[in-house]
Design a protein around this nucleic acid. Structure first.
Lengths: 246, 246
DNA sequence: TTCGTATCGTGTAAACTATACACCTTTGTA
DNA sequence: TACAAAGGTGTATAGTTTACACGATACGAA
């Protein structure tokens, strides 16, 4: 039984009137948020990494992370990290999992909350000025500092699962995109090939795509129509949403 | 930008040789684990709650929780809480989400990691000796101490979703159970009625039920067959598992 | 012992959904 | 002008899900 277990409080018998001194008697630990920042570019899933500044992880890369400030909500901390590093505010971001192995950080016990972040690299690339930060192909990332490879793999699995339940993929694409780009994205993330006609039918039946009336203009072949994702309509119906299924 | 942001470290230029003093400079906070402990009894979903010992939450109940010890993994902490309160070791338990609002605890900032726990009440009821702890009907829980109602609701939503992807429900049932009990469980958790024949077909097609050859012996009508869940077979195939779908 | 009640156990037809598959069109480039 | 590359579309088949009904069995009460 832990030395600081709940049962100690109960032995006092009477109700506790001073929660502040109670909480002060509890142990504290370091807490960070780490963001697995995914982008999609040249038909490949990319991850934004920073060069580790710890000597023992020399030449290794790590996820972007930071401490949680004393009065800061975790989601706010994750948004702050994104804002500081990419300059962007309107980024899709979701909490994935806490990583808590006592020895996961060489500097002592640090608990970290993993966030999965999806953004469009084109939209964001110009705002990154730190040349220690780069986009890496997800498929060629082999080793990272700390337990960040494990965290990244968890976030990728989370993404694979989540993208089949909700249309998150649009956060990785430009505002206007062709159906081919959309299909390439799904194929890259899920690691499977799909039938083009069936893929189009599936998205057509969701009725969440808006035909912009525009065409691609930078392809060396017949250009496809450009669509926008109907975020508003999706927001309205997502409570009764049951999944996409590929 | 946060006062304790990552970028401060980078200004030093050279690589950091002493991660321990680096980490010591970070802020610390209190961290707990709270368990939403679900049971199933009399065709109802139940939750194990403890009477709050804080005066400001007098007459309110709360989830079972405790601090994380300095050298303790989060999952280990959740198991410890379960072991201390129910006496059980072999309980199904999964991390759900971190709750981090700065003002969620009246005694100061306490970050908590929510765990969803499933157990069979019959198997465990005798081992609970603390009379401040009771099973409550999930459907009649209206207010809890702290933000525990919000946490419980998140865990319930997690359970509803998860039980449609993986056969977790068996953790809430006795070792041997009838198909009617199994269906009652799913109907209670999902809040829907199902066709008995289709429900049976679905589970039959999974081939994860073992016919014990025994019959119910405490029902005032024709007894049903008793089955066991084939945990071993499920463990082997769960990596390639794609879902149940009700 | 018999009857009423509650549940058990089972199969099939219809509706729906997912899959496999091919051809002509459009654009750009050589 | 013809070749290369992808766009855009429809249909038939297989597979899955749903809706639905009846005889059998056990218990309890009269």
């Amino acid at each position: 039984m832990s030395k600081i277990s709940y049962s100690i409080k109960k032995k006092e018998g009477a109700l506790i009137k001073d929660p502040v001194s109670l909480v002060k008697s509890y142990p504290k630990m370091h807490v960070t948020a780490d963001c697995a920042i995914f982008g999609f570019d040249e038909n490949e899933l990319k991850v934004l990494l920073i060069r580790s500044d710890l000597a023992i992880y020399q030449d290794l890369w790590s996820l972007l992370g930071d401490n949680i400030a004393d009065d800061e909500d975790l989601d706010a901390a994750a948004y702050r990290i994104l804002r500081e590093r990419t300059g962007m505010n309107d980024v899709y971001l979701e909490q994935v999992k806490v990583f808590s192995k006592p020895d996961r950080h060489p500097g002592g016990r640090v608990l970290t909350v993993a966030y999965c972040t999806l953004l469009n690299t084109r939209h964001h690339e110009l705002m990154i000025h730190d040349n220690e930060i780069h986009w890496h192909k997800f498929s060629s990332i082999e080793e990272l500092a700390f337990d960040h490879k494990e965290i990244l793999d968890s976030c990728y699995q989370w993404l694979q699962k989540r993208i089949q339940e909700h249309p998150l993929g649009f956060n990785l694409l430009p505002e206007k995109f062709s159906l081919r780009e959309l299909q390439n994205l799904y194929e890259a993330i899920l690691g499977i090939r799909m039938d083009r006609r069936n893929f189009r039918k599936k998205f057509a039946s969701m009725k969440l795509l808006i035909d912009t009336g525009e065409l691609e203009d930078d392809v060396p072949h017949r250009p496809g129509k450009l669509y926008k994702f109907n975020f508003e309509k999706y927001e309205k119906q997502k409570n009764s949403w049951t999944g996409i299924d590929f």
